[in-house]
Nucleic acid binder design. Structure first.
Lengths: 197, 197
DNA sequence: AAGAGACTAGACTGTCCAGTCTAATTTCGG
DNA sequence: CCGAAATTAGACTGGACAGTCTAGTCTCTT
């Protein structure tokens, strides 16, 4: 019952998925199947050969998109260097046009697809925060940060990194989304709050 | 040309506006005029007597909603007390179901109504942050906080207060939206980062 | 080269919706 | 109480869209 294993032409399937991904991102779930088909240079019936319904296509696209929003950090170097690298990566992934658009589509459609939204949260943002918290916990145990709730600390850092700039992006205010010094400013503020006593 | 001053029955107009506000909040811009009319217990034609188009009705509703998201702080007492009061109010206004729903609708429709989105940002979130920054600036000048960019500090505090919980609300994860200790935890972390040296 | 099955083009159905129009009914000020 | 204007119910237009169906074309595999 899982995935129908019909042997579609892989290149067609790929083109369709990519077109659907872009279309849902840029125009939301309400984009028409015709527009997706046109973007993929594919007949409408082909869409329905590959997916039983628009909902199913959307679900597949969301699955694929989750991975692109995962931000992992690697714990080389000192804490400040590690968090700076994480912060830059986090901001780049979430504040680029694609990151903003995925956020917009997911939050707009969450009431219609609550299961999908939950899965998105758990495998995306929650996962990112969990790994960051693991790193922070170790740093706390080694005395490189003060003892505190690592989940809370991770929540604070990620919030500080993107909250307002994401709102700007969501509301289409293109201004200063990429001020390079921002990550440093945030990490320094975070380190003041969580420095060893 | 501005607003047509026809003397509609005020009670009808009010009922219509409230119904439209709830409808747009709960179902997004795509809610049908018929549903809004039904909710207001009003004929569809009456909607078009009061507003020239769906867009115009939406614009009016957004105008009215902006005020409900403004959070002002009053600067009595010490810094911690003031920020705690602000934090509780800010969280309550933005994380309640209505606050979440307005955020969802605004960000979802920003591509279609960029002017409206810009106005919303300036008169809502930007205004709130600006007033907070003014307070923080004074506190810095009085030596009750360390000298720093007050706009940046305001951005950090507001981000820390709601970022993750707002995402939870947007994605329909009802869990723990109202942990009472959260504001205190955030304000304390903020004060560590911006305490006098 | 032949056949199976993927792909295509386009017609078609049923539904929903924004906005208009009309003809009746209600309400309210004078 | 009367008349102007607001309100109402419902029909109607035109367009969009999800999903189905069909008949024909293309493309791999054997």
């Amino acid at each position: 019952m899982a995935s129908v294993v019909a042997d579609f032409r892989p290149e067609t399937h790929q083109r369709l998925l990519e077109a659907a991904c872009e279309a849902f991102r840029e125009e939301g779930y309400q984009v028409s199947i015709d527009r997706i088909a046109a973007r993929a240079k594919v007949a409408r019936q082909t869409v329905y050969n590959h997916f039983p319904s628009k909902e199913a296509l959307f679900a597949e696209v969301v699955q694929q998109s989750i991975a692109s929003l995962l931000v992992v950090l690697d714990g080389d170097g000192d804490v400040r260097t590690t968090l700076m690298a994480f912060g830059d990566l986090y901001r780049n992934k979430l504040l680029c046009p694609e990151g903003i658009a995925i956020f917009r589509t997911m939050t707009a459609e969450a009431p219609r697809f609550p299961k999908l939204a939950q899965q998105f949260f758990r495998q995306g943002p929650a996962q990112t925060r969990k790994r960051l918290a693991q790193y922070l916990k170790r740093a706390m145990q080694e005395g490189r940060l003060r003892e505190a709730d690592p989940d809370f600390a991770a929540e604070m850092l990620t919030a500080m990194l993107v909250d307002l700039d994401r709102l700007r992006g969501l509301l289409n205010l293109e201004t200063e989304l990429k001020r390079p010094g921002k990550t440093e400013q945030v990490v320094d503020a975070f380190l003041r709050a969580f420095a060893p006593e």
